[in-house]
Nucleic acid binder design. Structure first.
Lengths: 345, 345
DNA sequence: GATGCTAGTTAGATTGATCCAATGGACGCA
DNA sequence: TGCGTCCATTGGATCAATCTAACTAGCATC
């Protein structure tokens, strides 16, 4: 039986210093890659650290210095494939920069978000990447006293760094495609939680309809989840007028809506066009394959981290809004022109 | 323009102590919910902490005490929906216990895993939940000197805590179902990386075939990813004998294999049965819907955390192996009996 | 010979909480 | 009153790093 958690005292700077025949301060400088130490000394210290099996204690460093080399990733839900990809991209980018990520989910609940934020501050993270929960107020974020980059959604009245897709323009193009395909009576599903991202998407849709002289969309106030998608089939049946296009606030909602609608007798791509937003992997395998707006979550995560790292380097820099272009991916679920093809927007 | 990161010195125990008219030690006891302090004193201290806007500094506490209230989550890939669910379950369970999770991905690469483990140790995490990368050696884990619960896979020769599905029994039942449906010539896809989990699945399949006097499966040595799934179509066409059943090592591989096979002219569920393992949400929406073995990743994550918390409480406890039961979910992709139904195994 | 400069190194103070041993006061009991 | 307990509280040391300012050579300059 191997020893489990041996209470061996780990060696400290002092031991390394003794081994190398220098002071603690010098060892500290070497470990932090300071240009102040001579090459020979540096080599000697590194050898000594290796020899005694030294392990850096970031906790002790944190106490004295202001940096922890950690960042918080606070997203809505981890097991939504969209956010999973966003988190994967953010984690990889942080890792590459020598940071390590704390992960927490808000479930779009302000209380949970508040708890998580408190823990992250207790841990003295250097910065936070946040998909703010519905109802988050600007003071909550500004009051953190921490660099915070928002992703996907913005807290109203908070003019900080932000990374997200060009929702309005993208959805406008998506709706334009549907209209060109002959669709006229639009429903927008997922208006249950009107955060800034949803509002932009809805705005894009409204603008396209207005431009073509069509009536505004019917709103289904369901959450943007699989559960929300399942509710859609029932709600659609109850509408006074039969719609011919269902624009879903995100892919996941569409994934659940499509089978439910099929069971209810709708012919997806035929009498009803269905679209998503995101273009996660499942969009290509569901049948009919989903017409959607590609927003590249992985890249959004990477971009948000880039903004965060920049902000850490230069706290006084002007706030940056990284609005990433989207791309319309036309598949079968919208029927009409361009079936199975992809086209830029 | 709101102040960005005001260099306000955060109040410390000393300030709270002064405000409450007690010593630092007493404040510390209150903050840690010690039963030693009198109720009146406790209330006074809590009010004082609130009044001065005190924020606990876990870094300082860590330096003195041995606990950080953090744990590491080290998984293969975050954007595989299976692991995303596992991580979501683990994060929720850790959160409920007052812990916060570091997240990192190994990409099944020992070097990356090693780097992540080093960072986690530098941060002095209390414990680690690990899906060990291929080729991980027992000493690497035992040498951490840290509580470590393995999930999904085991490092050979390491007898520690473990949480994972009953792969062998599950796949045996799955294969039994296919055989009962008339399938005879089996291919196993995803044998590119033979970790313990894959080996168990393969064992289960082999056992079922042997029991029914059928020849062993053909192995396709592709990775268990979407890319691996796409390679499958080409490889199947090249086989000397046409198979009638494709057992995929996981759902994600099957999701990519099915459309690729369809394009190559195979009739899924008809001339070729295809199955996955996991039963993530996409399994129900792909067409034909995927027959798979439900392994409940979320519950595996929760269970692994339960084991980890137990180990933290009692480092000397006997190692526990939590082997969670699986459930056969029969859908269309395997054709034959039980179409669209679900059945226990 | 005094002075200034630079590169490399260092001693000692500091960070904010916890641990430990000690202390003061209230209480019970002979 | 005196003594032993028990409870609540405390001062000082401690954890392992970083920071600050100072110091030492070595060399060039005036």
């Amino acid at each position: 039986m191997a020893p489990r958690h041996p209470e061996t005292r780990r060696p400290t700077l002092t031991e390394v210093a003794a081994e190398a025949g220098v002071s603690r301060a010098t060892v500290s400088l070497v470990l932090r890659d300071s240009p102040l130490v001579a090459a020979a000394t540096r080599a000697r210290v590194q050898a000594a650290a290796e020899a005694v099996g030294y392990l850096y204690n970031r906790g002790a460093a944190t106490l004295r210095a202001a940096r922890t080399k950690t960042a918080g990733l606070l997203v809505t839900e981890i097991d939504n494939p969209f956010f999973a990809e966003l988190v994967a991209g953010a984690e990889a980018a942080l890792d590459a920069a020598g940071y390590i990520a704390f992960l927490a989910a808000t479930g779009d609940c302000r209380d949970r978000q508040g708890r998580a934020l408190r823990r992250l501050r207790e841990q003295r993270v250097d910065g936070i990447l946040l998909c703010p929960a519905i109802g988050t107020r600007a003071e909550e974020i500004a009051g953190l006293g921490l660099p915070c980059v928002q992703a996907m959604r913005r807290t109203p009245g908070l003019a900080g760094d932000f990374a997200g897709p060009a929702n309005r323009e993208g959805v406008e193009a998506l709706a334009g495609h549907l209209i060109a395909g002959g669709r006229r009576r639009f429903v927008f599903a997922g208006a249950g939680m009107l955060h800034s991202g949803v509002r932009e998407r809805l705005d894009g849709l409204r603008r396209a309809l207005r431009r073509h002289g069509l009536p505004p969309p019917v709103l289904l106030r369901v959450p943007g989840t699989r559960a929300g998608g399942e509710a859609v089939a029932r709600l659609l049946a109850d509408l006074p007028e039969r719609p011919d296009a269902l624009v879903c606030v995100n892919d996941v909602l569409a994934f659940a809506a499509i089978p439910a609608l099929q069971r209810a007798g709708w012919e997806i791509g035929g009498d009803l066009a269905v679209t998503g937003i995101g273009d996660v992997a499942e969009a290509a395998t569901i049948r009919p394959a989903l017409t959607t707006l590609r927003t590249e979550p992985r890249r959004i995560g990477e971009t948000a981290v880039r903004l965060l790292l920049r902000r850490l380097q230069d706290p006084a820099a002007a706030a940056e809004q990284a609005i990433l272009p989207t791309r319309l991916v036309v598949r079968e679920s919208c029927g009409g022109a361009g079936n199975l093809a992809m086209s830029d927007c």
